[in-house]
Design a protein around this nucleic acid. Structure first.
Lengths: 209, 209
DNA sequence: GTCTATAGGCCGATAGAC
DNA sequence: GTCTATCGGCCTATAGAC
């Protein structure tokens, strides 16, 4: 197609088709899983031929692993608020709790979690990318934040890392479980807020001064 | 085979082959997932022909769903301790916490969780069977137990159900996450005990009297 | 780089003998 | 009920033209 060819050169979009492929494959794989998506389906969704896919990706496994790893790296929320000096603790816990809890039950969050858990036996790299880039990172940042708050006399923790784990675990609540099992794909934001407030209250009752 | 035929009749084992099929299929499906297991593989593992499988199960989907549902119903631990009158609270929380936390990271527990989460989009019944038979049941029993303890003046809860969720969520901890993602398939029992003790301590600090 | 066409294999499910 | 043998289809991956 002459027009498309000229457009490619006009915008310097050498990586246009590869990008189309990545986006189409990500949509399909995340929604349906590795085994249920055929390369024909990816080609159709991307509007290219199957041969074009194989010109850019070695095989189906590489395409899948590439995309899921990318999704693992990108989806995590901004936690800059945990790097500043501790101000109002309740406010900080509510804020970080809300963004994390909402991510957990969001469509993207649920799909990514599903793929990683389902395919990590065959793609061990996915488990590593997901855990290190997400839960582990957040836990470390929160643990450091809590330790600083304790140094300021605002908390009485035994083990900051354990305390961080406990708070985050309370966010991976039944709403998360119900979203993962398809029983409640989209919990109401008010419900999420209630759980986050509950976790914050309980955390401060146990560890606050 | 004459001998096997006589044996079948001798022990009245009309359902011998079906049982072999169930066990073989359960092993393979739980370990490798729906898409990765072929009916040929099930036949080989069970020591029967493919046609025999289809004489007992309508198709691959039914066989899979049957087995996973069965596993969902069977695996949950005994929670009779939550039905008696509340005695020592710390002891009860530690006991129920240990059996639940150990189940969560056990090979069977991890495999079942993986299958349910991975396949619930295509098999919604699995999500229902898992959630209602497991997490929901335990949560309801624990909530009722905590409410009775509160009536005895042993606790000061806002919402018993929320409190039960919080305690159980702390058991679905990072060990669970790491087991699901294949990063740490078998956490040390001492590590589990530490998490359960931590959850119990924190719970009693927040809600105890 | 991108296409059409196809190789080559495996899979789910069934037919028919016993 | 159980087997052997096989069908039709779909899937991954590639060859070869442009």
């Amino acid at each position: 197609m002459e027009t498309a060819g000229k457009l490619d050169r006009a915008v310097g979009a050498r990586a246009m088709k590869p990008q189309q492929i990545r986006e189409a494959a990500a949509r399909l794989f995340l929604a349906q899983g590795y085994g249920a998506v055929s390369m024909d389906a990816v080609a159709r969704e991307a509007g290219v031929s199957k041969a074009t896919i194989y010109a850019h990706f070695a095989d189906k496994a590489e395409l899948f692993a590439d995309l899921v790893k990318e999704e693992c790296a990108r989806q995590w929320p901004d936690t800059a608020m945990l790097e500043s000096e501790p101000g109002d603790l309740r406010e900080a816990l509510m804020a970080v709790g809300m963004v994390y809890a909402e991510l957990l039950v969001s469509p993207k969050g649920v799909q990514t979690f599903r793929m990683v858990v389902a395919e990590s036996p065959r793609f061990p790299e996915l488990g590593r990318a997901f855990y290190d880039g997400g839960p582990r990172l957040i836990r470390d940042k929160l643990a450091a934040y809590l330790a600083r708050a304790e140094a300021q006399g605002k908390l009485a923790l035994g083990d900051p890392r354990l305390a961080a784990q406990q708070f985050l675990a309370m966010l991976r609540c039944e709403h998360h479980l119900r979203a993962l099992t398809g029983l409640d794909p989209a919990p109401a934001p008010a419900e999420i807020a209630r759980v986050v407030a509950g976790a914050t209250d309980m955390f401060l009752r146990a560890y606050g001064r």
